[in-house]
Lab assay of single mutants.
Amino acid sequence: HDTTVHINGLRIEVHGASEEILKWIEEAARRGVEAEEIKRWVEEALK
């Protein structure tokens, strides 16, 4: 999927993410993980 995830006011563009990654992002956000940190993880995961 190409999608934009909104976390604590930060937009994260996610290209080619699976449902699993999207669920993981939402879970991390709920746990209060910094949005910048999530963004870094997602970029690494999608390389």
Score class of each variant (00 low, 15 high):
Glu43Ser: 10
Gly9Val: 02
His6Ala: 07
Ala28Gly: 01
Asp2Tyr: 14
Ala45Glu: 05
Gly32Leu: 04
Asp2Met: 15
His1Val: 13
His6Ser: 12
Ala28Ile: 04
Arg30Met: 13
Ile25Phe: 02
Glu44Ser: 12
Trp41Lys: 04
Ile21Cys: 04
Gly32Lys: 02
Ile25His: 00
Leu22Glu: 01
Leu46Val: 06
Asn8Ala: 09
Ile12Trp: 08
Glu19Gln: 13
His15Asp: 10
Ala17Asn: 04
Val14Tyr: 07
Leu46Phe: 07
Leu22Asp: 01
Arg30Lys: 13
Glu19Phe: 14
Glu43Asn: 08
Val14Ala: 05
Gly16Val: 04
Asp2Leu: 15
Thr3Ser: 12
Glu44Asn: 12
His15Glu: 11
Val14Glu: 01
Asn8Asp: 12
Leu46Met: 11
Val14Ser: 03
Lys23Thr: 08
Glu43Leu: 14
Arg40Phe: 06
Ala35Gln: 04
Ala17Arg: 03
Ile21Asn: 00
His1Asn: 12
Ala17Met: 07
Ala28Asp: 00
Leu10Tyr: 07
Gly32His: 03
Ala17Trp: 07
Thr3Lys: 11
Lys39Tyr: 11
Trp24Arg: 02
Leu10Thr: 11
Ala35Ser: 06
Arg31Gln: 10
Trp41Glu: 01
His15Arg: 10
Val5Asp: 03
Ile7Glu: 03
Trp41Phe: 10
Ala28His: 02
Arg30Glu: 11
Asp2Phe: 15
Asp2Val: 15
Ala28Val: 03
Leu22Trp: 11
Lys23Gly: 05
Thr4Asp: 07
Glu34Val: 10
Ser18Gln: 03
Glu36His: 11
Gly16Cys: 05
Glu19Gly: 08
Trp24Ala: 04
Leu22Tyr: 06
Glu36Pro: 05
Ala29Arg: 13
His15Leu: 14
Glu43Thr: 13
Trp41Gln: 04
Gly32Val: 01
Leu46Ile: 10
Val14Asn: 01
Trp24Gln: 02
His15Phe: 15
Val5Gln: 03
Ala28Leu: 14
Ala45Met: 12
Glu43Lys: 09
Leu10Gly: 05
Glu13His: 09
Arg40Ser: 06
Lys47Ile: 07
Glu26His: 14
Ala45Thr: 09
Ala29Val: 15
Thr4Ile: 15
Trp41Tyr: 13
Ile21Tyr: 02
Glu43Gly: 08
Thr3Cys: 05
Lys23Pro: 00
Thr3Ile: 14
Ile21Ser: 01
Ile21Lys: 00
Lys39Phe: 11
Glu37Gln: 10
Ala29Asp: 05
Asn8Thr: 04
Val42Glu: 00
Glu37Trp: 13
Glu19Ile: 13
Glu19Trp: 15
Glu13Arg: 10
Trp41Ser: 02
Val42Gly: 00
Gly16Glu: 06
Lys39His: 05
Glu36Gln: 09
Trp24Val: 02
Glu37Ala: 09
Lys23Tyr: 07
Ile38Tyr: 02
Thr3Glu: 12
Arg31Thr: 09
Val42Ile: 08
Leu10Lys: 03
Leu10Arg: 02
Gly9Cys: 06
Ala29Gln: 12
Asp2Lys: 14
Glu34Met: 09
Glu34Arg: 12
Gly9Thr: 03
Lys47Phe: 09
Ile21Leu: 10
Glu37Phe: 14
Ile38Cys: 01
Lys39Glu: 04
Leu22Phe: 08
Lys23His: 08
Glu44Ile: 11
Gly9Asn: 05
Arg31Ile: 08
Glu37Ser: 07
Gly32Glu: 03
Ile25Gln: 00
His1Ser: 13
His1Met: 13
Asn8Cys: 08
Leu46Cys: 06
Gly16Trp: 07
Gly9Glu: 04
Arg40Ala: 09
Glu44Ala: 14
Ala17Phe: 07
Thr4Ser: 13
Ile25Ala: 03
His1Ala: 12
Ala29Ile: 15
Thr4Asn: 08
Lys39Ala: 09
Arg31Lys: 10
Ala35Arg: 03
Glu13Asp: 14
Arg40Cys: 03
Glu26Trp: 15
Ile21Ala: 01
Gly16Met: 07
Leu10Val: 14
Arg40Thr: 06
His15Ser: 11
Leu46His: 02
Gly32Arg: 02
Arg30Tyr: 12
His6Gln: 11
Ile38Asn: 00
Glu44Phe: 13
Ala17Lys: 03
Thr3Arg: 08
Ala45Asp: 01
Glu44Met: 14
Ser18Met: 05
Glu26Pro: 00
Glu36Phe: 13
Arg11Lys: 13
Ile25Gly: 00
Val14Leu: 13
Glu44Pro: 00
Arg40His: 07
Leu22Ala: 02
Glu43Tyr: 15
Val5Gly: 03
Val14Cys: 04
Gly32Ile: 02
Val42Asp: 00
Ala29Glu: 08
Lys23Leu: 11
Leu10His: 07
Ala28Cys: 05
Glu36Asp: 10
Lys47Asn: 10
Thr3Tyr: 12
Glu37Tyr: 14
His1Gly: 11
Glu44Gly: 08
Glu20Phe: 15
Arg30Asp: 07
Arg11Met: 14
Glu36Tyr: 12
Glu13Phe: 10
Gly16Asn: 09
Leu46Pro: 00
Trp41Cys: 05
Thr4Cys: 12
Glu20Thr: 09
Lys23Val: 08
Arg31Val: 07
Lys23Ala: 09
Glu43Trp: 13
Ile38Leu: 04
Arg11Val: 14
Lys23Arg: 14
Ile38Asp: 00
Lys39Ile: 12
His1Ile: 13
Thr3Met: 12
Arg40Tyr: 05
Leu10Asp: 05
Arg30Ser: 12
Arg30Ala: 14
Glu36Val: 09
Arg11Ala: 14
Ile7Asp: 03
Ala29Leu: 15
Glu19Met: 14
His1Tyr: 13
Asp2Ile: 15
Arg40Trp: 05
Asp2Cys: 12
Arg40Val: 06
Glu27Gly: 04
Glu43Phe: 15
Glu36Arg: 08
Ser18Pro: 07
Ile12Cys: 02
Gly16Asp: 06
Lys39Cys: 06
Ala35Leu: 13
Val33Met: 12
Arg11Cys: 08
His1Trp: 13
Ile25Val: 08
Glu37Leu: 13
Glu13Gln: 08
Arg11Pro: 09
Ala45Ile: 10
Ala29Cys: 08
Thr3Gly: 14
Lys39Gly: 04
Glu44Gln: 14
Ala17Asp: 03
Lys47Trp: 08
Gly16Leu: 07
Glu26Val: 15
Ala29Asn: 07
Glu37Pro: 00
Thr3Pro: 08
Arg31Asp: 09
Glu36Thr: 11
Ala35Thr: 06
Glu27Met: 12
Lys39Leu: 13
Ile12Pro: 01
Val42Ala: 03
Ile12His: 01
Val42Pro: 00
Glu44Leu: 15
Ile12Met: 03
Leu22Met: 12
Glu20Leu: 11
Arg30Val: 10
Val33Thr: 05
Ala28Trp: 15
Ile12Ser: 01
Val33Gly: 02
Glu37Thr: 10
Lys47Cys: 07
Val5Phe: 05
Trp41Arg: 05
Glu13Thr: 09
Glu13Asn: 14
